[in-house]
């Protein structure tokens, strides 16, 4: 069951990317892309196992959409934040690398969390080791692991926990 779901997810993702790139597509394009995607998704590639964690439950899709909105808002805020810091003559930064913890177990969830942290205000994921993330923070506001965790991670974690949990 798990391998079927994983191969189906691979097939759908590859086909959708192909159709996005080829748009506007003819039926021949569709057939060619779907054929190649089918072939690739049947290959025994160990990296595909990561797609086992995707499942199309309605609750997960709703949370994914909310996550997308939260994420876009965070990206815009982060850009304005960086713009403000760059343009201000005094250069208001107080950087450091802090450790935060994540509750997420799924690898795909951790990947999305690390990417989301990198794109949100003032933080870049420098290293991910198991449940510990090491984050470069442009303005270190807290010296406590739990407090940094709630400031940096928790906003995204609650959605990702449902989506990939």
């Amino acid at each position: 069951m798990k391998t079927i779901r994983m191969r189906l997810a691979t097939f759908l993702i590859l086909t959708v990317i192909w159709l996005l790139v080829m748009y506007p597509f003819s039926s021949a394009d569709l057939a060619l892309g779907a054929g190649i995607a089918l072939f690739l998704s049947l290959l025994p590639l160990p990296g595909l196992r990561i797609y086992e964690e995707i499942s199309p439950a309605p609750r997960k899709i709703i949370y994914a959409l909310i996550f997308l909105l939260v994420f876009v808002k965070a990206v815009i805020l982060s850009n304005l934040d960086v713009a403000f810091r760059v343009l201000k003559p005094s250069l208001p930064i107080n950087p450091g690398i802090v450790r935060v913890k994540t509750k997420l177990k799924s690898r795909l969830g951790r990947l999305f969390l690390a990417n989301a942290i990198t794109l949100t205000p003032g933080t870049i994921t420098v290293e991910a080791e198991g449940e510990d993330f090491y984050i470069h923070w442009i303005d270190v506001a807290s010296h406590d692991v739990d407090e940094s965790t709630s400031k940096i991670v928790s906003g995204f974690e609650k959605y990702l926990e449902v989506i990939f949990g």
Partner: peptide, 17 residues
Amino acid sequence: MPDTYNRMQAGTKATTL
């Protein structure tokens, strides 16, 4: 920006959006 990490901060976010 004064060092690599802070340059990365400016580089990543602004170029993505």
